Amino acid sequence: MNPTIEETKLIVPTTNPSPRFPLGPAWWGAVMGTGIASTLTQLHAGQTTLGADLARFFLVAGWAFAVIFTIGFAIRCLRTTGAWAASMHGVGASAWGMVSMGILSIGSATATVLADWAPQFTTVSWGVDGALWVIGTALGLITTFGFSLALIRRRNAEPRPAWGLAVVPLMVSATCGAPFIAKLDSPVLAATLLAVLIFCFVTSLMLGIIIFAAAYCHHARVDRIPAALSASSWIPLGVVGQSTAAAQAISSQMHRFILPEAMPGIQAVANVYGIVMLCAAIPVVIFAVSTTTFGIANKMSFSPGWWALTFPVGTLSLGALNLGHSLQSNGYSAVGIGAWILLLSTWTVCAIASLRHPFLAKSPAPAN
């Protein structure tokens, strides 16, 4: 069975042997992967000169991607009738979830890296992160509920892992928003933010389970993921890793709202959840590796969808890193480091592939 028309337009090449991919939401996977690469490089190796420089490179590159994609898409919408409307309809609309996650990812990287790079801008970096968290979360709410309602109406018979892009943003919001609880002086505002984060966590987890379960069942019983969409098999790993990180991030802020003697129990729940999720990551990774290998064997052409090889791997690293710190376990920390090294490798592959392939759409010939 073939990919849908919307998927073909956004993340897979057409019959053109040298396809061009116009700037738009589908490219924001590059911002997501670069932002989390910056954050993780700072966390894993920021104490070294090389690590700090690499984290700063990723931060600058992530912001450059965000600006280029935003301006490029705006120009495209002004020049091409229907470009904006096309990005908002059909299965391809899930790509707007990548815009939300890209905004959240680069905001978190700014607070993590810039504060170390230029301490005098610490307050500014947190302000930027806060503003981007609000924007990214608002967009994530729109993609989550808008896309979910669209799926209910359309009842598409070919579920894909890429559908999950629309609902994962709220899990990223749950992780990135937790540090702001400690910065709020008002107990009411802090409790409200905590409630929002828990809502984001539960909503994303539940919808993600439904969407990915449907996709896995479809590909196991009906047809496998098309070779051109092989990289999308890594997307479910994003919920696994990100929810592990979110559980740790939220539980670390609970001391402000519960009795001290209850904290060990809360932390234990977060730890058990993380262990279960990282165990669940094993078959997900095996499936993703086998599917991607199938795609490579069938000579899948480059598309912006290749960037799905970056952010989900990064969330696994972040989740394992946080869990390792909580359990004081070198084993989980080693998993986090291994996933980070894999992220650096996949980021390099995707960056080189992107530079080798044109991404600007050819301008239509003027009408006579």
Rank of each mutant, 00 (worst) to 15 (best):
P187V: 09
L23S: 08
A365W: 00
V222T: 15
G274R: 02
A83G: 07
T81Y: 09
I103Y: 00
A231H: 06
W347T: 13
T192M: 04
F21I: 11
H357W: 11
A138Q: 05
N368D: 13
G130D: 07
V284M: 14
I11F: 11
W163L: 03
G29C: 09
Y332K: 03
F57E: 07
K362F: 05
S363G: 12
A361I: 03
Y273Q: 02
A320T: 11
S326M: 08
F287H: 10
P161W: 05
A215S: 15
L54A: 14
V239P: 00
P169Q: 05
M98F: 12
V222W: 08
L149C: 12
I266M: 11
P13R: 12
G324N: 02
S94F: 01
A231M: 13
A215T: 15
T80S: 14
I106Y: 00
A157I: 00
I36Y: 01
W84A: 15
A227S: 15
Q242L: 06
S38K: 01
S329T: 04
I106W: 00
C350K: 00
W27S: 13
T315P: 05
S38H: 05
A213E: 12
L344C: 14
R76P: 03
R56T: 09
T144I: 07
G177A: 07
G29W: 10
T48P: 11
L54V: 11
F57C: 10
A281S: 11
A367L: 10
N271D: 07
A268H: 06
L132E: 08
A182H: 02
D53Q: 12
I266N: 01
M206Q: 07
V134A: 09
A281W: 01
F212V: 01
A351F: 15
V188F: 14
V240E: 01
A247V: 02
L321E: 06
F180H: 12
F65I: 13
V349Y: 14
A247G: 04
L40V: 04
L141T: 10
W126K: 05
S252K: 04
V335F: 05
A281G: 03
V349Q: 13
A178E: 07
V31H: 04
A213C: 14
H325Q: 07
A247P: 04
A215R: 14
G90Q: 01
H219M: 12
S94W: 00
I36M: 06
R256N: 02
S329K: 08
G319S: 11
L342N: 08
K183P: 04
C217R: 14
L360A: 11
P17T: 08
S125W: 12
I68K: 08
V289G: 06
M1S: 13
L193D: 03
A95R: 00
V289M: 09
L207S: 10
A228C: 09
I103P: 00
T70K: 05
I352H: 13
V134I: 13
G92A: 06
H325F: 06
G336P: 00
G338H: 02
G319W: 08
V12N: 09
